[in-house]
Design a protein around this nucleic acid. Structure first.
Length: 369
DNA sequence: TGATATGATTGGTC
DNA sequence: GACCAATCATATCA
């Protein structure tokens, strides 16, 4: 693709036509030529860009800044080094072509200026030629050549942009996240199944844990929510897996907490309910803790978070006993219109049901789109 | 090599 | 600006 872009600038025909034009004008008629030539802002932009990309100006390793940008965009993983060297090689090629062409044009410009000067000198034998006229002639020639240079710069910029887009287009070099990263994301997702909308802090924490960017986390959750919702049945097994996994941790943590409560405060109201989780109460308790934390996810220990535990336990209970609690109605818990039994749905659908227990065919009717 | 999975992008809504 | 839904483009697997 980039090769095509490189071939796009066909300067030579343009050069010849301009040369012919100037030659014609050197006959006698040089009227109508432009007199003023203020600094062209477009040319300045092109120059700046070529300089920034490392195409013009001193060589800095073939656009190291752009390569660094490419590295940053791709997450900075080491397996991109080959692509980066490829990028640099191609940029170097562009640079070489640019400089070769530029040199050619400068040479042609000088040669042609000399040629015109000689012509004028010859003409001066037959007619008087003022220095002003000579100066004007030279000005015309230089303007024509600089317009060609601008075309060259434009084409070079295009080639660089295409090259960059090719290497920076993340879709083209998509990498699957690591298994560990996917595990972490899935654990969070399924342990927050009633409200799988991580806060900004949670996203940052997840991003850090998974070595991905926050926007990648957002993308992942966006994809996950939509694909889960579309085909709950397909994800059932996965949901069970993660729910069970987290539930073990959760059960241990809750048991430990209960034991601790019993030890420290034998008269605690919750102590009597050990052995059968009273989820709504637990939920309230956890809600309070959640509000203390400001967020339901602490990142470093999946399952340590009590909110996650409630979600997980509820999910497991759902799997086994068809339990349906009223947690979804809690305003702290339902920024996205949770449905009655802890499922979630988009903000535009009023109150249809989404439950992990219901399987395919029971996906809530999403008519928002 | 085709089917499927999956991360990213885009366009629209709120 | 966050989110959803559709879609694209690539990775992975049978």
């Amino acid at each position: 693709m980039w090769k095509h872009a490189l071939n796009c600038h066909r300067m030579k025909p343009a050069l010849f036509s301009v040369l012919c034009e100037i030659k014609e004008k050197t006959g006698l008629s040089i009227r109508g030529a432009q007199e003023e030539d203020p600094p062209d802002p477009q040319l300045m932009r092109l120059d700046n860009m070529l300089l920034a990309e490392g195409v013009s100006g001193p060589e800095k390793g073939g656009g190291s800044a752009a390569a660094a940008a490419a590295a940053a965009a791709s997450g900075g993983s080491s397996d991109n080094s080959i692509e980066h060297s490829d990028y640099r090689a191609k940029l170097t090629q562009i640079r070489q072509i640019y400089h070769t062409e530029l040199e050619k044009y400068e040479q042609a410009c000088n040669e042609f200026t000399t040629h015109v000067m000689n012509l004028l000198r010859e003409q001066s034998r037959t007619r008087p030629i003022s220095p002003k006229e000579i100066e004007r002639m030279v000005g015309i020639i230089h303007r024509k050549f600089s317009s060609i240079q601008m075309q060259l710069k434009q084409s070079t910029c295009e080639a660089v942009m295409i090259l960059r887009s090719r290497f920076l287009d993340a879709r083209r070099k998509r990498r699957n996240f690591s298994k560990q990263a996917t595990e972490i994301l899935n654990e969070y997702f399924y342990s927050h199944l009633s409200n799988p909308y991580p806060s900004e802090e949670a996203k940052e924490e997840l991003a850090k844990k998974c070595s991905i960017t926050v926007s990648q986390v957002s993308n992942w959750f966006g994809n996950k929510r939509i694909r889960y919702k579309k085909n709950i049945g397909k994800f059932q097994e996965e949901a069970n897996l993660y729910a069970a996994k987290t539930a073990v941790t959760a059960a241990h943590a809750v048991a430990a907490a209960v034991q601790n409560n019993q030890t420290n405060s034998p008269t605690t109201p919750n102590s009597g309910s050990s052995g059968s989780f009273n989820l709504p109460n637990s939920g309230d308790m956890f809600m309070n803790m959640q509000s203390l934390n400001g967020d339901s996810y602490q990142g470093s220990q999946v399952g340590a978070n009590v909110q996650s535990q409630v979600d997980t336990l509820r999910h497991v209970i759902n799997q086994t006993g068809g339990y349906s609690d009223g947690l979804g109605g809690n305003s702290l818990y339902s920024p996205h219109n949770l449905n009655a039994n802890g499922g979630w749905q988009d903000a535009t659908t009023p109150s249809s049901v989404t439950s992990p227990t219901e399987g395919p065919g029971s996906v809530h009717s999403d008519t928002s789109n």
